[in-house]
Amino acid sequence: MFPLILAVIKSQNELYKEFEREALPHMDALYNFALRMTGDSDDANDLVQDTYLKAFRFFDKFERGTNCKAWLFRILKNTFINNYRKTNKEPDKVDYDEVENFYENVKPFSSDSAHLEKEIYDNLLDDEISRAISSLPDDFKTVIILSDIEGFTYDEIADFVDCPVGTVRSRLHRARKMLFAKLYKYASDKGYVKD
């Protein structure tokens, strides 16, 4: 029996070491995503903890050589849907027509776009940009975070959101326009840009 126990303990130790090497370095990325999805630091703490415990339990199922970060994000998403969103609120329903109307009213970039860019970039605070992202509907917020902050490919995002790559592309396109409209409005309200 002892050799068997020794083998189990050794394999557990090796699994832990591999998990420590592959999965733990992504904790900050997961925490920030959790924070943006839940909007609450306590929920984000619990969500990250549940995600890691689940990931460790199923780490032997993780396909070696694939993107561990993307795998962890998928676990986080499922945990979020099952445990958190259910108790807190239904996901935001995105009215795509409304979004279309919203961003069509955005003042388009024109000949002075470089100046406009600089005004917005230099004057808006990091917190205001984070707030603008957080205020986007879930579907849009997700693709923006995964693409622009976490650097996932369209394929990885498609896998994450269970949509075709084409949908990811169009959603990202709209999400950025909507985000720009919000940033433009913040900047305009504060007098950084002139209407």
């Binding site: 920030n32 917005i120 808006l124 990091d126 992202i133 693409s147 622009d148 902050i149 950025r176």
Partner: peptide, 16 residues
């Protein structure tokens, strides 16, 4: 521009 500003200026908090 929107991609750039999101990437560079979005706040990032370390896990407690």
């Amino acid at each position: 521009f929107t991609k750039l500003i999101t990437k560079n200026k979005c706040t990032f908090k370390p896990t407690p």
